[in-house]
Amino acid sequence: MAEKTTLLRIILKLLKPTAGTVTYMHDGAPIKNLSLGYLPQKNMIDSRFPITVEEVIASGLLGDSIRKEDAKKRIADTVRLMGLEQHTSKSIGALSGGQQQRALLGRAIISHPRVLVLDEPLSYVDKIFEQYIYDLVAQLSESTTILLVSHEMSTIAGMANRHLIIDHTLHECHSSHHHVHYDCDDCQAQSE
């Protein structure tokens, strides 16, 4: 677990690698900035912090140059997309774990990032919303690169076009049928 969290933090430039560098590439050329959306595995928002669901989702637009009217529409659309219309003005701490996860997912996708990093997106959500997340990820993948980390391989594996398996080393799996990490017939170890 620590390896994947460390790798994600390095990719997001939240942590410096002990060796080497992180370079974002687009069309074969390095780029300085890359718009990223991030859903952490664990909700790090203090439930006593007085922030509403709408404010949590809107915080995903911080740093974006977007007109006020466009921002309001995008916030309303994202709240609706996450099924949180009835909770918009509630404190984030008043929500269930699954509702908090949906608010944080809304924060991750509201800016329409080029890369979306999802760390265990199914944590805390109920089965109905789990299926909704699968559908949403499939829809988002048409215009966004998604890096999704999950221990739940069955459904996720069928959605991915590349599988990287981290178990003390990094392996790229070329098998399309594995359901858990040890079923990969054709894994190749990658040098770190």
Rank of each mutant, 00 (worst) to 15 (best):
L36Q: 09
A94Q: 06
S123W: 02
A76E: 07
Y38G: 03
H112T: 15
P113N: 07
D77T: 07
I75C: 06
K127F: 09
D70Y: 00
L140P: 04
D183V: 01
L164M: 15
S47K: 08
Q41A: 15
L140Q: 03
K42A: 12
E69H: 00
L147Q: 08
S191Q: 10
S175R: 02
V56E: 00
D126Q: 11
Y134N: 10
T5W: 00
V125I: 15
C184E: 01
I51P: 01
I92R: 04
S47G: 04
L136H: 12
L81C: 12
G60A: 07
T145M: 09
E85P: 00
L39D: 11
K16R: 12
V180F: 07
Y134Q: 05
A189I: 14
L61H: 01
S141T: 14
Q139M: 15
H151L: 09
S65M: 03
N33P: 01
C187S: 08
S150L: 13
E54Y: 01
G37F: 04
E130W: 03
A76L: 06
L118V: 12
G83W: 04
K73C: 01
H178E: 11
C184Q: 05
D126W: 15
P50H: 08
I133E: 12
L104F: 04
S111T: 04
R48G: 13
T88M: 04
D185N: 06
T145W: 01
R114F: 13
V53Q: 05
N161L: 04
H179Y: 08
G106F: 03
H181L: 04
L147Y: 11
L15M: 12
I31E: 10
G20V: 10
G97C: 08
S141G: 15
A58D: 14
K90C: 13
D70T: 06
H174S: 10
S47L: 13
R67D: 14
S123L: 04
K90P: 00
D46T: 04
E55A: 14
I156G: 01
G98Q: 09
L61G: 00
V79E: 09
R67W: 00
A19R: 15
G20L: 14
H163I: 15
L39S: 06
D70R: 06
G106R: 14
A108M: 03
K16T: 10
A103R: 01
K72M: 09
L170E: 08
H171K: 12
V180C: 04
L36F: 10
E172N: 03
S176Y: 09
I66K: 02
D64M: 14
L170F: 03
S191N: 11
A103F: 02
I57F: 02
K42C: 00
H112C: 05
M25K: 07
T169R: 14
F49C: 08
G28C: 07
T169M: 03
L118F: 10
K72Q: 10
D126F: 08
R107W: 06
G83Y: 07
E3Y: 06
H171F: 09
C173N: 14
D27V: 01
P113H: 06
Y124F: 05
Y38C: 11
G93I: 10
E85D: 15
L8T: 01
P30Q: 03
T52K: 05
K13N: 13
D70M: 06
V56L: 09
L140I: 11
S150W: 06
N33A: 07
E55D: 07
Y134F: 15
H168Y: 14
S154H: 06
C184K: 10
Q100N: 07
V56C: 08
I128S: 13
E69S: 14
